[in-house]
Design a protein around this nucleic acid. Sequence first.
RNA 1: GGGUGAUUAGCUCAGUUGGUAGAGCGCUUCCUUUACACGGAAGAUGUCGGGAGUUCGAGCCUCUCAUCACCCA
Length: 1021
Amino acid sequence: MDKTFNAAEAEARIYQMWEEAGAFKAGANASRDETFCIMLPPPNVTGHLHVGHAFNHTIMDMLTRWKRMQGYDTLWQPGLDHAGIATQLMVEKDLAETQQPKRTELGREKFLEKVWEWKAAKGGTIEQQARRLGDSMDWSRSAFTMSGAESAPATEKPGNFHDAVLKVFVEMYNKGLIYRGKRLVNWDPHFETAISDLEVENIEVDGHMWHFKYPLAGGDTYEYVEKDEDGNVTLRETRDYISIATTRPETMLGDGAVAVHKDDERYAPIVGKLCEIPVGPKEQRRLIPIITDPYPDMNFGSGAVKITGAHDFNDYEVAKRGGIPMYNLMDTKGAMRSDGKPYAEEAAIAQAIANGEQEFDEAMIAAMNMVPEEYRGLDRFEARKRVVADITAEGNAVMTTKMLKNDEGEEVETTVPYVEDKKIMQPFGDRSKVVIEPMLTDQWFVDTAQIVGPALDAVKEGRTKIMPESGEKVYYHWLENIEPWCISRQLWWGHQIPVWYGPEMEIDDEGRRTFNFAEFKKICASTEVEARNDFEEYYGFKTVIIEGPEESREAWDQAFGNIALTSILRRRESEVGEFRDAIPIYRDPDVLDTWFSSGLWPFGTLGWPAEDEAMKYFPGDVLVTGQDILFFWVARMMMMSQAVLEQDPFHTVYLHQLVRDAKGEKMSKTKGNVIDPLDMIDAYGADALRFSNAQMAALGGVLKISEDRIKGYRNFGTKLWNAFSFAQHYEIAYPGDPVRPDATQTLNKWIIGETGKVRETVDAAMEAYRFNDAADALYAFTWGKVCDWYLEFSKPILQGDDAAAKAETEQALRWVLDQCLILLHPIMPFITEELWQLADSRKKMLVHADWPTYTAANLVDADADREMNWVIDLIDNVRSARAQVHVPAGAKVPLLVTGLDAKGQSAWDNNHVLIQRLARIESLSHVDDFPKGCVTIPMAGGTFGIPLADLIDVAEEIARLEKTMQKLSKELGGLRGRLNNPKFVASAPDEVVAEAKANLALRENEEAQLKAAIARLAEIG
RNA sequence: GGGUGAUUAGCUCAGUUGGUAGAGCGCUUCCUUUACACGGAAGAUGUCGGGAGUUCGAGCCUCUCAUCACCCA
């Protein structure tokens, strides 16, 4: 054997062996019908392995290997997520770097070809990296969320995930669970797409709060009164304006109202009146109403809030409640709109609306551009500056005084605009890093309110358990307040929404058909053919597919010429005669949110909607993922599985925290504290990293990865390795698959019992998802019991002449070491498999070895247990005493004993060889009294002593004994205090009282021995 | 502002129904003894964040204060 395990060489070789043997295939090693299935949270196809993956893969792999060894029909399902935005971004960057045409220049079809090319060439590195961790996934089943898409090239691995996505969309659409609507969504001006709430990061940044005056219409005035808490008037003045505070002045252009709280006495006189938005051309200043709403906080700012329904989520709610028009001010890039009619016209209409003179609807408002010409086309942040400057120049900024240096450098009181520096929470796109703009757009939504019920019930009724439990509260809180889920994205890479639009057809009383391009008819179908069939049936007319809505009118004109729509069909039939054209329809250009497809992961990967044998793995068992993804993904899988299959996708959700660095800080490239798991594997081997991961997997615990710790577990691996090297050194045969002997030797009985205990502990810990307990128990057993004691104890027998004892011990030792390998395999698969293969022949690879079922009850021999613990105790005490009185480590000393009882005597007789060897004892003599200068070692069943004659420093020995006494007294005090307390004896459970009594007796015995020893020494002293 | 969690040895953290505190690393001393120096032996260190309460008994339960972290506004 090599001196240490060569992880770098062995891991690749072993992994290859497993993979070639199909060791991880679904159902491999199955000896029973029960299935065990874990779905890997699919990493982005662009992804790389980071410490978070390394952590949760370790958990999943431990569970999978454990269940596979237990004979379950096991599947750990791998795969990749197409990751809409991330991938599209990556490919666009790649195009730019390689001087290829841009996405928009390529067009949709060509661009998608590029994405697929990119995926084939560079995607999925993470799957190779995962192999280095030892992940036992069934790679042959690796799934992809875009498999089977129309755009997929023939070279791609076949799959039907796309079918699943479309089928679910169509079904949910037909059930009314998916709708299209205009709502305020988070808009990413960089990618020009809607994104979900969860893709928004709120970051606190330095911002400003501006205070402006909105003059009352017609120069009206009112008495503005401020009072303190006691109702005393602190300010009274006549105002002709209402003061508004805002962090986003550019959105003033879209204000629809000013809101105040109904209880706010300051503004009571002017509620219902109109005020003027103090920006834009003087001639067309818009007047907006002052309304009441519960939203404004009377104590914040001036207490009055401008309402811009199209650009703020709170305002949106207020505007909806109050029927306030929501004017959209920006284009898809976040610049001020430059389309629509001249401002003067738009402002006139808006005024009519505000005055209540004109009806309005959503579509009409959406088309209106309330941006004055001077701001049109400006970037939103540039527009902000200009708006602030213009308002201030006109004198509508609220002013305050401040000490500023004048031209001569003197501090003088100066009147300046009132602008507060303020920390504001600003939303950023988690991918694009640009400021997210709330935008009023047409999007597709899942009506989550309708499907959330069963997902909530699953947890409430205990069908699905969230670990740690605190996750359940968070889950309820989120699901009970769930918002509609915006599922459309204005991207190209993804599942294109399977909805086609054509002009709405109306048939009048005379049977004349008219077509309406303002109201499109939607048909949802899983294929284009089906959609066209449906449309053609509807129109009774041929259709033609065109690109998008902007072309629809054009296409129509091209097809039919400039003919009045109302009579198109009649004229066509009678006048056009030869008929070559068709009604244009187009497919929705948007794609689905990536999370819509990954929500189907639990069954989409198993062949659904096709009938597939693999569906036996649904529902799966455990979902292991980061806490941050509970809403993104877990809740959605639960909703979608119920909505589609009416089943819960798994019974347990194991949530873990973000993996941080050793100091508990988030890892980030800018901080430079990123730990690459592959570097750790290179340096210490995958097993060490995995053990470290298992060990820190305390439920709900903070995950801090530390290189020192990983190194420590590498050392643990070496310890295990050396235990085998020990066996080899003693030339213990290793035929393979050792059988547990019927032990007669105490030490063998004892270690077999300890093995029984640890197996139970490990299984209990694994079942409770307490992986740290499993790892700690195995560490303590392997190192602390097997290596530190058992191997040491076995030496005299292995070197001795008792052939029977030797044979039994060799067999027991092989068996125990085998058990270490089996029990450690789920955590440390490589080194254990390597050691397993040292045997001459094995029935199976370790990865498929049978997980043991023996119990402590079967294997523990109470007498052997007691005896060995006594032996260990004695050795410990002798060693400790020797070290403290500075007996040279190598020196062999005689040992004395007084009052040794029968049990003690028999324990000594059975094990004296071990004791003498490990405690370096020359001989044992029974004496009535200890001689002068003797170190005392109190033990159950007798007092031991080491005579040191002149060697002993009496004072030092007294000090040592007194120190022990002190500790003992503390304990005795506690025990006596409790037992003397009648209430304790009366109210504590009997076994607790009994235990305390027994403990007290033991301690009192020890105390007596110590007292005697101290007295003896005092005499000499 | 709302929510969740944390505060235990020098450091990083365990501590499962309340029974009197543990691990790893680090540190000190000794040991290259025939599995292992990625080792062995011995050792030190804690008013379990502060305060109050419930209880015979609190690291654990309740309240309160402080500090920190994360999530959501």
